[in-house]
Write a protein that binds this DNA or RNA. Structure first.
Lengths: 162, 162
DNA sequence: CATCTATTGTGAGTAATTCATAATAAGCCG
DNA sequence: CGGCTTATTATGAATTACTCACAATAGATG
């Protein structure tokens, strides 16, 4: 059988150049996260099991963690939610989460390419050499705003801050 | 015995104006978080037990959660760490955490009073009405930078990103 | 001071994640 | 190609951080 160049070869190459072995578990996890960005570990388990029915939750955690330190995945932490993963790495983008429905959108910060990397230190604090700025916006998406106009407001205490 | 105006009365007044009862547990928690900003729930348990030896972990969680929704405490989530609490609220400041020693410093974002509230939406994403922008900087403080120059670097994989 | 109800204590339970160790399979070498 | 070495995955248990239901207690109001 002659091999055909499948899109999955991109991930295989990435794994190899990161010095890791190419396994079907890793390829399946990468494909799942690519297809469903901002997936939780549980989401990934569900998606991967369509292909590898017997994979365990623990293995998914190991693979996700390993791919994250290898730089193939980015792990993000949003409030009141387990960790999420995405394949969009190395571009310093941020995230907005809707307090109503939990929807997560990607955001490129308005302040240039490496946003907010020049913090204003509070008096008395000791400066650091900043490498990463993770920004999590919280707001209400248009869908939730419309529905909350009629029904009871979602998380009302948030609307009066800032 | 005549009552003297103690600093704790400030917290009592804050509790009352928030419509909550003034209890010794809440006062002790507020004092602990004020003394040790960025405390975890476990830190607070330790600090409060110096005064209230028999308070339970669960009560600390209840009090912290209640004070947070009351607006007297702010809860922050930093990577690879349980939630932390601080008494500095309503001033939209952010945090920098040292990837070496875990030190946390307060940061006033450089971009005006309400920083980064105008995100640049990625193509295809749906906009939201932004209410909060939580920024977590990660970097290396001067202490850790010096010591890592001689010893083995801490978290080396982080130093080559961005 | 008595009553009402917010608050705290008690005990159990859960979600998310990690750890130790055994089994397996990638990639290398001849 | 077939064995060897070691990275990777599976297995099972444990841990951390936190939540919940309900009973006991104690602020605040009149």
């Amino acid at each position: 059988m002659t091999e055909h160049i499948a899109p999955a070869n991109t991930w295989a190459a990435s794994l190899r150049s990161a010095g890791r072995r190419v396994t079907k578990q890793r390829l399946a996890v990468l494909a799942a996260v690519e297809q469903f960005p901002h997936s939780t570990a549980d989401d990934v388990v569900t998606a991967v099991r369509a292909e590898l029915a017997d994979i365990t939750v623990q293995s998914i955690y190991v693979v996700l963690s390993d791919l994250t330190v290898s730089g193939l995945l980015r792990r993000i932490e949003t409030p009141n939610s387990p960790a999420r993963y995405e394949t969009r790495v190395n571009d310093n983008h941020h995230h907005a989460v809707c307090t109503g429905c939990g929807r997560i959108e990607d955001v490129d910060c308005a302040v240039g390419h490496a946003p907010c990397l020049t913090p204003a230190w509070s008096p008395g604090s000791r400066q650091m050499t900043i490498q990463i700025a993770d920004v999590v916006y919280q707001g209400v998406c248009t869908d939730c705003r419309e529905s909350s106009a009629e029904n009871s407001p979602v998380l009302p205490e948030l609307t009066e801050k800032h």
